[in-house]
Amino acid sequence: MPPATSRPHTADTALPTRQQALKVAVFTLLLSWPLHRLSGTPYHAVFGRIGFIGMALLLAYAAAGRFKPHWLGIAPARLMAVVLTAPVAALATVLATQGANFVTYLGERQTLLGQIMMVFLSIFFGVLFSLAAMRKERKQRERADRLQTQLEKDALERELLDARLRLLQKQIEPHFLFNTLANVEALVASGSDNAGPVLRHLIAYLRAAMPRLGDADATLATELQLVRTYLQLMHLRMPDRMQFSVSDVAEAETLRFPAMALLTLVENAVRHGIDPSMDGGSIEVGGRRDPGSGRITLWVSDTGVGMSETAQPGTGLANLRTRLQGFYGASARLDLHEATPRGVRVELHFDPGTKP
């Protein structure tokens, strides 16, 4: 009599599980006791017959899922196997215990009624346990299907997010490169003696930076190094009008960070803050980790013309906000503040332990 299973049978499973056999044995022990009391037959004899029938029904249930005909579903095949196996298994117990006297044994009214009752109970409990087992298997399959669907959905969402991040990255790369070249063009057009050194530094910078522009494994340390190199280049272009400082950040070597995120902020500070200012200004890049929450704050501040002339953020900032949330989840944010007495401070807030 098949019990509820702990896992659904597959098409390749022709034998019952160990848990099924254990449940049949326990049920046989419990059922044998009232039958022993009602019939007066010794307990071990009742247990042997009930146990044999129970195991026969269990084998039939398991095998039906594997060897069923193609025109019959698994559930009808299992129920049919149990119903047909019950009288055969009950008759086999009589042959095993009575031998050649089984005809005489069944000829007695009391024993014949007992045999019919045994077949009835076998069919009843066999069908009951089969239905319970198939219902549990169906629920397990439904749970497995839901889990598989969710896993596929999550995988698709990750692929879409990666594709979106790659697209945003490609938008930022030419934005950065063209702005940098425009700065060099302005220097050359002005006839500055620094044009040659700046151009050489730019070539060296691009040789170092280009392999990292699409680096999915970029870290905050590599980003800070690019920022330093870029600011050195800009300082050569306007040595009397721009000063800068870049501070180290704890654990920057191991912190995964979206490539060119800080560089975009620094470029904006130069282009929209320092360049338009008659007096120039300074740029500060730094960061800190909150010891309690573990959240990290990075900032780029400048003492340029201020918020009034930079109130309309372009593609770089919009993409950066999206990329930051793609890396660190919806709680990551980008804040713009007006600095005192002038300038702009941009802050990135995120939890490096949060997954998108």
Rank of each mutant, 00 (worst) to 15 (best):
A195D: 07
L226W: 11
A269W: 00
V46N: 04
N268G: 01
R37M: 03
E253L: 13
S301D: 13
A182R: 15
V127L: 09
G280V: 01
R200E: 13
L233K: 06
R228W: 12
L236M: 12
F327G: 03
S301H: 09
A21L: 14
R37C: 02
M134D: 11
G286N: 07
L22K: 15
R271F: 07
T340A: 13
G292E: 10
D335P: 00
V246H: 09
V305T: 10
L334C: 04
A56G: 04
M260Y: 13
T229I: 08
L324N: 03
A339I: 00
A208T: 08
A332M: 06
A100P: 13
R109S: 09
T340R: 10
I116K: 07
I123S: 09
Q115A: 07
I53R: 00
T149E: 06
H349L: 06
V344N: 10
S282P: 01
Y230K: 05
H337F: 09
F244G: 02
M80D: 07
T322V: 11
T222I: 10
A182E: 11
M1Y: 15
P42V: 01
T10R: 15
I74D: 14
E137N: 06
R271E: 04
E284D: 12
H175V: 06
T310E: 06
L15P: 07
L30V: 07
I283W: 01
T41Y: 14
F176E: 11
M1H: 14
P69R: 08
T310F: 12
M80R: 12
R66C: 03
A195N: 05
A63R: 15
T254S: 10
T93D: 00
Y61L: 01
L79Q: 10
T97Y: 03
T85A: 09
G280R: 03
R228A: 05
R271M: 05
V270I: 08
T17M: 05
V184R: 15
S277Y: 04
Q148W: 09
K139P: 05
A259P: 02
T297H: 14
P76R: 07
A21F: 12
I123T: 11
E223P: 01
W33A: 11
A56P: 01
L336Y: 11
L348S: 03
S301K: 12
G286A: 05
A209F: 10
I50F: 05
D279F: 10
R78P: 15
L106I: 04
M118A: 14
G65H: 08
V24D: 09
R141D: 10
R289Y: 02
V188T: 06
Q312L: 12
H337Q: 12
V270K: 02
V270Y: 04
